[in-house]
Design a protein around this nucleic acid. Structure first.
Length: 875
DNA sequence: TATATGCTCATTTTT
DNA sequence: TGAGCATATA
């Protein structure tokens, strides 16, 4: 982002835009532009299908491209930019292109580079919402009461700050956790709400009604720290635009084309931000934000969010202003909106045509990724959602040999992992690269079982997602040192490392520094410097502090003349930070030292320490090792945008997927988002798709029986088959003997023995049928209600099959508003200590202890386990 | 200041 | 169940 010519002069390069008719410069673009104008298809247009081409060539006016999974979305976006440039419609700096992730931005830059050649000097305004926000804010910082050198706080800093504020208010920080409040603030900022705008109900909900005060105090504190959080990167520009029409007008003049990737993921703040930039006189009549009824969960009685208020004056189109038309093009897929829980408003994309009257809507439905079976399955599933813009993916590349989508059953998660591992090994034997396979789970706890299994098998795997490099403790500590050196006033950074490694500067010392800082209105480092010159501190801490302050001064003095990697290394050495880990005997210590080395290495790419810090604040991703051939393991969320030849989707059980919490908290729209998540999962696969479910899963340490996900039932029979290993219980792994032959399988052997048959006829087990019935009976209106307490016992031995069972009070699980499972805790346990019992998974054993419906059993073979009494019977 | 013990919580995650 | 956090304890 730095170093582009656009950074320095204010609007420098496009004060005098080249008129479209000007003679093109010799070279790549010009030649192509000529070609384009003369009607000969420019080379970059070749190979586009008609819809894609239309999306590329409809450069004027608002355009919405509904790009289904695997339909060449990125290609359209990049080609469109190339086209705009090549035909001389705009300079690179007149195009605003926003993405959500750095990865997407990087990819786009690279691809445009390839299309256009090096004739352009990069795209200064191609980046994430946040990186562009930083850029805007650095230019106009003073209008937000900041200095342009402001620092960007991450979540960790944010939480520490909030905690201080909560304590300063005299509130109990356990009753009112800073983390939770940080989330609330995020939520407000996602909606574009500053303290005075937040709904009264929200304001009261936190800290004995002090929510609003705390939010205000937080914003003030940020200002004094000359800092912003991620949300501010959008909010400040919005406010600046609203309050300074002249500034906004500059950008209106500047940006001729706006492109937005993943529009379905935009939140309200991003929407407002975009609309400010893209507003045109035409919008005047249909003020978009009005009368927008958000889909709410029943029972949500909080007042309408402020986003429903009419926009403020500054946003209103200035009709008399003869501004140029700004052409906005949003690309997205409403069916892949899976981030509602973090503020994304699917509504933004659903409403596009109203927001931008006269918009051209182009659907990309030709899929280049998956087989017809996979597409058929995905399309059929997603068709169960209401409120879609509607698309149906198709492919021309149908091959009769393509395998159908396979559904597999497993007894429990352990067997699921084992069977899946075998499947992978079998594929590997058939020369399939592990890199082409992925396991996509709903929740990260599911990964563990696979990891364990793969370790046993010696199968390479990689976890995508997980804790990020820059979030690791040692990295953040190191960065804090660098921050203090580069920006002496960074109090949060200073605080983080004053006593890391331990220098005897405990709570008391820090308190003292704080007091001085507050009294003088100076940063902590400054205060510390003053403090060591006085007698106020005890000798020991004073010496330690003096040493630290002097070190910082020394390092700051070296900042300009020492190569930054060298300086960084020196800082970590001299501060004792490296030694701290060298002396640490714990298992992670070597890894942490390795990470620190990696950090220094990664700094080499940057020109200076400051440049590096700027990058780090926004780019939180780490590269993956492409060399290794390994199976990818990740959540469904992190799989969006990726594709693999073979995809495994384990854990398709009610309660896990769709996740119970999504159902409880999100109601119908929660379910629909889960379904979109399933759709995302299915459409990641190019050739082979395997879906799994188990009958038993351990939740919070207790074994629970589960029923197959309703999503399985929403897959079309024509494209799905039940895997031949379907008798997985017997087929894979567990020897029959383990299962006590002759004993009736309490949970219903039919499911496993006749899996194939069973699946094609809606999983004809008793439990499933009952669930089915409940589902049919329960109307959609019942969402989220607690009424209709229907008691049911599933399986054998008075089993409680509900998630959350065994937790004491309310038991059972809601399926579309009906309780199908129930507690057995109300009734005294049918067992007593010493009873001989049998358990399906663990075999025979003796009851060692009883706690409500939870039994501790000493199993003959499996050792001591805790299980629900519903899972055992008398032996 | 280091270790022990208790308590709470348990989807998804970018910037 | 078990991880992460916070307080208790010596």
């Amino acid at each position: 982002m730095s170093g582009s010519p656009d950074d320095l002069p204010f609007f420098g390069d496009d004060e005098t835009p080249r008129p479209p008719s000007a003679a093109p410069r010799a070279g790549g673009i010009a030649a192509r532009a000529m070609a384009a104008r003369q009607g000969a298809a420019a080379p970059y247009l070749e190979g586009l299908n008609p819809e894609q081409r239309l999306a590329v060539e409809t450069t004027e006016g608002p355009v919405l491209v509904l790009a289904g999974a695997g339909t060449g979305k990125t290609r359209v976006l990049t080609t469109r930019i190339a086209h705009i440039l090549a035909t001389g419609r705009a300079y690179p700096s007149q195009i605003l292109a926003v993405t959500f992730t750095n990865k997407a931005a990087r990819e786009m830059k690279a691809r445009i580079g390839v299309l256009v050649g090096q004739a352009i000097e990069g795209m200064p305004w191609l980046g994430t919402f946040h990186s562009i926000g930083v850029k805007l804010l650095r230019r106009h910082a003073e209008l937000a009461g900041l200095k342009s050198s402001f620092t960007i706080l991450d979540t960790d800093d944010q939480i520490r700050l909030l905690k201080q504020l909560i304590q300063a208010e005299g509130l109990d920080d356990k009753r009112w956790p800073a983390r939770q409040f940080a989330q609330m603030i995020d939520g407000w900022k996602n909606k574009g709400l500053v303290p005075k705008d937040i709904p009264e109900g929200d304001a009261r909900a936190f800290a004995n009604g002090k929510g609003r005060e705390l939010y205000t105090a937080y914003q003030e504190r940020l200002k004094t720290l000359n800092a912003v959080d991620f949300g501010d990167l959008l909010l400040h520009p919005i406010r600046i635009f609203r309050e300074n029409p002249d500034v906004l007008a500059e950008y209106h003049r500047k940006f001729k084309y706006i492109l937005v990737d993943e529009y379905q993921d935009t939140n309200t703040a991003q929407y407002l931000w975009l609309r400010l930039l893209a507003q045109r006189p035409q919008i005047k009549s249909g003020l978009p934000a009005e009368g927008r009824a958000r889909d709410r969960a029943p029972g949500d009685v909080s007042p309408a969010p402020a986003e429903d208020q009419p926009p403020q004056a500054a946003e209103r189109p200035v009709s008399e202003n003869k501004q140029q038309q700004i052409n906005i093009c949003c690309v997205g897929d409403d069916d892949q909106s899976i981030y509602g829980w973090r503020g994304a408003e699917v509504d933004n994309i659903l409403r596009f045509e109203k927001d931008f009257p006269g918009a051209t809507v182009i659907r990309l439905e030709r899929n280049y990724r998956s087989t017809a079976h996979i597409l058929g399955a995905a399309s059929h599933l997603i068709a169960h959602n209401e409120g879609r813009l509607g698309k149906t993916l198709f492919t021309d590349a149908a091959d009769p040999d393509d395998p159908k989508v396979k559904v597999h059953a497993a007894w429990d998660s352990e067997e699921e992992a084992r069977a899946l591992g075998e499947e992978i090994e079998a594929l590997q034997a058939k020369e399939h690269a592990l890199n082409d396979m992925a396991i996509l789970v709903r929740a990260s706890f599911q990964m563990r079982e696979f990891e364990d299994r793969f370790v046993t098998l010696g199968l390479n795997y990689r976890v995508i997602g997980g804790p990020r490099f820059y979030e690791r403790m040692e990295i953040r500590d190191a960065l804090a040192y660098f921050r203090v050196v580069a920006q002496g006033a960074d109090d949060l950074a200073f605080e983080r490392i004053v006593n890391v490694p331990k220098r005897g500067l405990g709570e008391a010392a820090v308190r003292q520094i704080h007091d001085v800082a507050r009294m003088r209105g100076a940063p902590l480092l400054q205060a510390a410097r003053d403090l060591v010159g006085t007698e106020e501190m005890k000798p020991k801490p004073r010496a330690a502090l003096r040493n630290l302050v002097e070190s910082f001064e020394r390092w700051q003095g070296m900042l300009e003349r020492t190569p930054h990697t060298e300086l960084a290394e020196l800082i970590l050495e001299e501060s004792g930070y490296t030694d701290m880990w060298k002396n640490d005997r714990s298992a992670e210590a070597p890894g942490r030292l390795e990470n620190l080395k990696e950090l220094i290495r990664s700094m080499e790419e940057y020109e200076s320490l400051r440049g590096f810090l700027e990058h780090v604040a926004l780019v939180m991703d780490a590269e993956r090792d492409e060399e290794l051939d390994a199976v990818s393991l990740m959540t469904l969320h992190s799989a969006k945008g990726l594709e693999f030849d073979t995809v495994f989707l384990p854990g398709w059980e009610e309660g896990l997927f769709p996740h119970q919490r999504a159902l409880d908290e999100g109601g119908r729209s929660g379910l629909e988002e889960e379904r979109r998540l399933a759709y995302v999962g299915l459409t990641r696969a190019k050739k082979n798709l395997h879906v799994w479910f188990t009958s038993n899963r351990r939740i919070h340490g207790l074994w629970q029986s589960t029923i197959p996900s309703r999503f399985l039932d929403e897959l079309p029979e024509a494209h799905v088959e039940v895997a031949e290993d379907g008798g997985a219980y017997g087929g894979y792994g567990r020897p029959l003997g383990d299962r006590q032959p002759g004993r009736p399988n309490p949970y219903g052997p039919s499911r496993f023995d006749e899996a194939a048959e069973v699946f094609s006829s809606t999983y004809a087990t008793p439990g499933w049928q009952r669930a089915q019935k409940n589902r049919t009976d329960a109307t959609a209106r019942n969402w989220g209600t607690r009424s209709g307490h229907q008691v049911e016992r599933i399986g054998y031995g008075e089993t409680d099959s509900g998630y959350g069972a065994g937790r004491g009070s309310v038991k059972g699980r809601t399926i579309e508003g009906e309780l199908v499972a129930k507690s057995v805790a109300d009734s005294p346990s049918a067992f007593k200590v010493g009873d001989r019992v049998f358990h399906l998974k663990f075999g025979n054993g003796n009851v060692a202890a009883i706690d409500g419906n939870k039994l501790t059993i000493d199993f003959d073979k499996a050792g001591q386990k805790r299980v629900l009494d519903g899972f055992v019977e008398r032996a």
